[in-house]
Each structure stands twice: as C-alpha cells, then as structure tokens.
Design a protein around this nucleic acid. Structure first.
Lengths: 277, 277
DNA sequence: AGGATCGCTTACCATATGGTAAGGCGCTGT
DNA sequence: ACAGCGCCTTACCATATGGTAAGCGATCCT
C-alpha cells in the first residue's frame, strides 16, 4: 500500500457482509470477470504489491478465500488481468492493420485506434505501464512476441511513404512508431496528474490530445506546416474511425468497451469510459 | 515484491555480516546518502511497496534497524529519495531557463538539458514516473508547485516564436512542452524494455533518441523538412555529462553546482546520453 | 430423493514486514 | 581515564498478508 493507509486501522467490518441482502448466490454476473475488472482498477492505482487480496475481495464484495477460489493465487489474478488486456489488444490489432495502408487519413485511422485503445481505459493503460516498470523481463517478452511485428508493419508502411516522398527521409520509422506509442500510453496513463503542470485555463484533455496528434502528424507530414493557419485539412484526428461505422468489427472481451465517442473532445471524460465505481 | 522472489527462501545469511572486514565504523562516506542512493535504485526497480527495509539494508550492507536509525520510517526514506531528486532538478532548472531564450539552438539546449536530466539516471526517472502513478495527489502538488511555472516559461518562449512565425500557429505551447517532457521521461524510463519492440538491428539508443529529438524539433520547426537530407544544421545536441570524470568542469551557466552523487557507477544504458547526430 | 458439486464462508496458519528496545563498541572531549 | 555519544547490532513484537482447511447451503444431475 503505497498510499496513505494507516496499517493500524482496523480496515472496517470487512468479511461477513457479502451478499447480506437477499441477493441470490450468484444472482449477478460471473465472479471471475468482476474480480479481473476490480483487480485491474486496483493494480492500476496501487500497483500489484500495493494491492492486497483483501482489497480485491472487498472490491467485489466477497471474502478473501472466495477470490482464491477463483484464482489459485494473487499472481494468477494478475496474470488474468494482463491476459485480458492482451486479448483486448489482439482483438483490436487486426482493425488497426487493416486501416494501415498509406496516406494521411490512414495515419489518422491507425494512430486514432491506438489512441482510443489506451485512452478509453486509463486503468488498463496504467497497468500496462506498471507492468513495464515492475516486470521488465516479462514485458520485454511480450513486446517481442506481440508488439514487434506490428511496429514493423506500421514502420514499413511509413518507409514506403518515405520512398514516395510523403515523409521526411531522416525519420526513423521504427523509432517513430515506438515513440508515438509511448507518448500515447504515457499521456493516457497520466494526463489527470500531468495536467496539473498546465496553466489553470489550459487543462482540457481535448487540447492536450490535439497537440499530441499534431506532434505525431507533423513528424511524418511536415509539409502541413505549409498552411500554418488553414488547419482546414486537418481531419479532426481520430475522426478517422468515425467514418468507419460500417463493419463494426466485433468487440469481444472486456465490457469496458464503449468506444463510440471516438471524438477526442468528447472523450476527455475518461470517467465515462472507464469502469464503474 | 512484485518480482519472482520465493517467500520461502531464507534470503541468505543477511544480518551480521556487515562490515565484517576490517573497514572501520564509518570509514566510508556518510550512510544517509548511501541509503538514499540504494533506495532510489530499489524503488525504481521494485516500487515503494515492492521494496522492503530489509532490501535497503542489505543493499547498503547494514541491518534493518540501522536504516531506521537514519530515517524514522520507510516513508521517510522515500521522502528523502524524492527530495534528493527534486533538489537536483531545482539545481538544474536555472541552467535550463538561462538557455531558453529563443531560436532553434536554444531549443536544443533546453530540450537537451531536460533530456540529460532524465536520461542520465534511469533510476531517478523511474522513481519519478512511479511516483506519478503511486501517489497522484502528491505528484499533482509537485507539478503545480515546481513544474508549472517552468512549463509556462518555456511555453511563452514558444509563443513568442509563434508570433515571429518561427513555429506553427496551431501548436499549443503548453501542451507541447508537457508532451515532450512526458516523452522524454517515458523514453528514458523504459527504453531498455521498449526497445524489445524494435527489430533486431535497430535497437540502438542513439537512433531512438535521435528520432525523439527529430519529432520534438519538427513539431516546432516544420520547415526543417525543407532539407530532409541535409540534417547538417542539427547542432549536436548537448553532449552528455559523459566525460565528467573528475573535477566537474562547471557547466557554462548558472551556479547550479553539479551534485556529487550524480555519477553512479555504470549507469545502465546511458552510453550515448546525447543523440549522436 | 439424494449425493455430488459449486460458490462461498469462518477459522486458521506461517511468514514477512515495519518498527521498537536495549545494549555494545569505538571515538571524542575533558 | 572515562563519561558521553553516535552508529550499529541482536532480540523482539504486533500486525498484515498470502494461502489452506474444512464446512455449509443452494443448485444440478441422475
């Protein structure tokens, strides 16, 4: 528990108050997904070591052994959390790659989709970031196995764009993709905190995101600067997917979905997108 | 302990082996700084909750109560760690601001200095990142008190550059500064891990950093694209503190004294602190 | 029906952890 | 010389934590 939580505090009545009311045995949805969801939130806020099984149990209103009834150990809970995130990522990947062909609007589509993946659920994003910090070894394996090919694919598109003179020759496609990815992740994970470094009036998520997209775009399409004022062409960013209303690729896993607000402006309220509670 | 460390393991002889050899009582340097330094490393690797007092004690080769002799509690150790980082930051700040006047070379100076601050010691950077995740409240206060003004200052330089037509009009200076800051931090904190997503041949820190700087620069100076090949102008970003072997040649500015402990042994991946153009 | 099973509870346990108490050792000032 | 003190040690403690054992009521299956 990294946060201020006095150890001496009795920690409330806890136990023996689960389904007190007349709610049936498992009247509600399956327990496992609930555990995973709450654990995701808790891990994202306090980290794996800072979260106790008791915390998780309380969050889903059962007792500690009940959690261990569904998962052999705390580590397994974490594994499930990561797997769920990974599954969601992999179910999203194809969409990204399909959008990634060439040109600027494709750029918006791909970057917008990645952005949405991380911005739509900050808990998920923070868990990912924490995982990279806590278990670099495992994270490395994951990156090698699950992200590398994708980075290479997008990078090769960029490279072909370079050949056509679309992108600056001195750009390094792989590094670019990775950096933009990192930027999206860290922005999504820590905006609520980092925005405190912004002046009072300028703390809107929308403005922040717009600048993020601008930076990412101008790094590949510097000529945009040619018309510095007429931001006319600017396709309002992730609006990309917006047109793609057709073929609403099934969004399996995670009820946390809800990505229809693909407009970054309306997004801002991560709260709405994020898990309840 | 988030990493794989079996709890059943006796954890080695530990205790009662501190200064076994004939090294005098406190023949070496003061204990406090050593504790702070080792704690910084441990917190950066395992997080605050994942690090035990025992871990810290072992790292400095004393017993647990010895650590508590120098600090009232584990929390106080963390506080000292953060204070040391903050002090270093504040001693560096003036240099940054002095360099920040206008023009592109100034840009390199400022961004290079910030980059160096974080890249030079990944432990420090990871602690900062973790702090933002673990204690958002405290981090927010810190950002408000210690970073905001600085962001505003740099942003206002950029704004004046916009008026002169130097920078794109649609850039948002504050958001830009914050985003570049975040990018530098996350890149410095996690490069060793993230690079695994890069193809075999392209994992050099130098290339990665060069792209980071390119992105940051082209977002403010899109016209650079005009000469895509002749990256000649790039003023060789501030050479790192690399050869700061002995007698730290006073940095060409501000009385910000180089803090002593700033050259920890074999700082992990800082090989090329500055992107070698 | 009736037993197996699921999902969960209460009761426990071993260990690890942050922190305390008290004492020893060598250096310093007198 | 020796009292005092800083620094650190061994011994200990209370609590919290991950995990286990065993039981219990509702549901399912035959």
């Amino acid at each position: 528990m990294s946060e201020a939580r006095k150890p001496t505090e009795p920690r409330a009545p806890r136990q023996a108050r689960a389904r007190a009311a007349g709610e049936g045995p498992r009247a509600d949805i399956a327990m496992r997904p609930r555990i995973v969801r709450e654990a995701t939130r808790l891990f994202s806020e306090r980290g794996f070591d800072g979260t106790t099984l008791q915390d998780i149990a309380e969050a889903v209103a059962v007792t500690k052994p009940a959690v261990l009834h569904h998962f052999p150990s705390k580590e397994h809970v974490q594994q499930a959390v990561l797997e769920e995130i990974l599954a969601h990522w992999e179910s999203t990947l194809p969409r990204l790659l399909l959008s990634a062909t060439a040109g600027e609007s494709r750029f918006d589509a791909v970057i917008g989709a990645v952005y949405r993946f991380f911005a739509e659920d900050p808990f998920r994003t923070r868990v990912v970031l924490r995982h990279a910090l806590d278990r670099p070894k495992e994270a490395r394996a994951l990156l090698r196995d699950k992200v590398r090919l994708w980075v290479g694919a997008v990078a090769s598109y960029i490279r072909s764009g370079q050949d056509k003179g679309l992108h600056p020759k001195d750009a390094d496609p792989e590094a670019y993709v990775l950096l933009v990815l990192e930027l999206i992740i860290v922005a999504a994970a820590s905006f609520e905190t980092m925005k405190e470094a912004l002046p009072e009036g300028a703390r809107s998520r929308a403005t922040f995101d717009r600048e993020l997209f601008r930076i990412a775009r101008v790094a590949l399409f510097p000529e945009d600067r040619a018309r510095p004022e007429s931001a006319a062409k600017k396709p309002a960013l992730p609006r990309a997917t917006q047109k793609r209303t057709k073929n609403p690729a099934p969004r399996p896993s995670s009820g946390a979905g809800e990505r229809k607000g693909s407009n970054p402006k309306s997004r801002q309220g991560i709260k709405s997108v994020a898990p309840p509670r």
